[in-house]
Design a protein around this nucleic acid. Structure first.
Lengths: 329, 329
DNA sequence: AAGGAATATGAAACGCATTATAAATCAGGA
DNA sequence: TCCTGATTTATAATGCGTTTCATATTCCTT
């Protein structure tokens, strides 16, 4: 309600001086500083954010685009980002692409309108070609998801390695009949995981028959379906690599319903190490992704890029992945 | 980069006309409208959001304050809000109070600085007295959480009823030795649930010894602790009301580790009907809260209040709760 | 004591789009 | 033909802090 002018009038000083007080500039007489503070207090004055943004060409706001906030993986990622953003004095705009290309692009427009200082992409439905034009309006970095030929900084994990150690673990447990249930192949992250899986298999002279490949499956229901399909087979796998703990959980739940023993009849390995992995019985052996760390680093990097006017040329940061062994394998 | 002036120059018209084109005002010659559109296209012009905010005194941004985004209850709530906000042309700022009073108040400051048009409070760590001063700066409504003597609109569920039907269910299953694990009593929602619990008990001449009251427990770990404490007792309850599915899940997991049979040795009822409730074994009997609906209605109400300049005097909206029976009772 | 740096303050310009006001043009009615 | 009202466009004011520039003091330094 009150403006800087009114504060100036009330304290008998100019708007300039009031502004100096607000922004902790030096060169303000102590007595006058106190007068201004008193006037601000009396009027309940708070600087208008829109005016500051317009003048300062900064919004102190960062957008994060994820694909599904109800996925615990993303909520943990966002949780870490929100914490750091707050510490650094930024607001966080939450944008959910809902796995939709156009929604994702619409959210990127925030940068053009200078409504945010930067965007963290933890959803990557579009190709680099579609995203690249936005990068000239401000910093854009990707987090978790990635695209090798994209020219943007990225914080992610080594998915090839993740697929590799998961499969290696199954092989070491004596399995040779391994099935694969991953996400869509159009996503590089998924492709890389698959590469890791096959790398491990190859090293041991193994492979996966077409019948045991289940692409594009995500949720618990999908997991249940997968088990149904396996159950109907004549030649069944003895182990399965699932590209997510939710899918793994679905497989396990359904398997139990059919009195299939886990891991004796079917070993299941998940991915992400989400809370459910430790909750269901048997616990899911899985690949832990450092979501907190990823969110933290991504936000820190973004804040740095904004501060240094994106002259910082971070390339990429690859965070560690590790196997968490529970009872499902 | 480009401003409205440059567009005006390029199209040989005034900023006013360009503005009219942008805002679809009538009274613009068709030929000129096209010229302007062409110029905007050529320059890749997008109106500066900060300038529009300053001039229009509107931000098209709404903040939602929740207490813990990693709690599936809140992520579903936020998911619904984000969807509606997007449909109505608003951005959503995510604020996590992390169960901290001061953090919550700091987030409320967004309204004073006119950084948002309104705030949805799905976290309520502060008393009405502390929140009330903010309401004169813009619409504030509460969602899920509430405070009966707060003078603000609210979208919530009938928690007394929830506690009542949950407990009634346990009693109908033949239990008389019922324990209670809720949240902090300083939260009205929790107090009301407790009131419902005791109402049902009283109707059957039952009560809960002090020893079986576990206040202020929230997560899975808390649930595990609670079981430990029960297990160490001489006189153990045969059923427990947990104020959240996570706590219920923790209790169940730990109980299983000690070969306690659920529900034979200990019946457990949760609250929220979160995904885990259906995932773990045995499935958790719980009280379903309509999170999607709550989020949707809260956002719709907020948008309406902003549109009608909060002359709308919505009072409160109470949404249905219902018992979902699974195997844990 | 004189010159220069450091300190202190205000007037005015600026960031960028919207809007109020004014003015010009044109159609239709008396 | 003159007047009224609808249509079209432009100039200037506005929203509200921050920053530049100019000016005035005070404090050192040699």
């Amino acid at each position: 309600m009150a403006t800087i002018k009114e504060v100036a009038a009330k304290s008998g000083l100019s708007p300039t001086t009031v502004s100096r007080v607000i922004n902790n500039h030096p060169y303000v007489d102590d007595a006058k500083r106190k007068k201004v503070m008193q006037a601000m207090e009396d009027l309940g004055y708070v600087p208008n954010s829109s005016a500051r943004r317009l003048r300062g060409q900064r919004t102190n706001t960062i957008a994060v685009i994820i694909s599904r906030i109800v996925n615990p993986f993303f909520s943990h990622l966002v949780d870490a980002m929100e914490l750091i953003a707050g510490e650094k004095g930024y607001q966080l705009i939450l944008c959910d692409s809902r796995l939709d290309k156009d929604r994702e692009l619409r959210h990127l427009e925030l940068l053009k309108a200078k409504q945010v200082d930067g965007i963290i992409l933890a959803s990557l439905q579009n190709e680099w070609k579609a995203i690249e034009p936005f990068t000239k309006y401000g910093p854009v970095i990707s987090c978790n998801e990635y695209d090798t030929n994209a020219q943007m900084p990225v914080i992610r994990c080594d998915q090839v390695y993740g697929g590799y150690i998961a499969t290696k673990h199954l092989i070491e447990k004596g399995h040779t009949k391994i099935a694969y249930a991953g996400g869509a192949d159009r996503i590089q992250l998924t492709r890389d995981r698959k590469t890791g899986v096959f790398k491990a298999l190859k090293e041991h002279g193994l492979s996966i028959p077409e019948e045991w490949m289940f692409p594009s499956f995500y949720g618990i229901e999908d997991g249940k379906n997968i088990f149904q399909r396996i159950y109907a087979m004549e030649n069944r796998p003895t182990a399965i690599f699932a590209g997510g703990d939710e899918v793994a959980a679905g497989i396990i739940q359904e398997a139990k319903r059919f009195n299939y023993r886990i891991p004796e009849d079917l070993a299941v390995i998940g991915y992400d190490n989400q809370p459910i992995a430790d909750l269901i019985n048997p616990g899911i052996t899985t690949i832990e992704q450092p979501m907190k760390l990823m969110g933290t680093r991504a936000m820190e990097m973004m804040v740095d890029m904004i501060a240094y006017n994106r002259k910082v040329t971070y390339k990429k940061e690859i965070l560690p992945l590790q196997l968490v062994v529970r009872q499902s394998t």
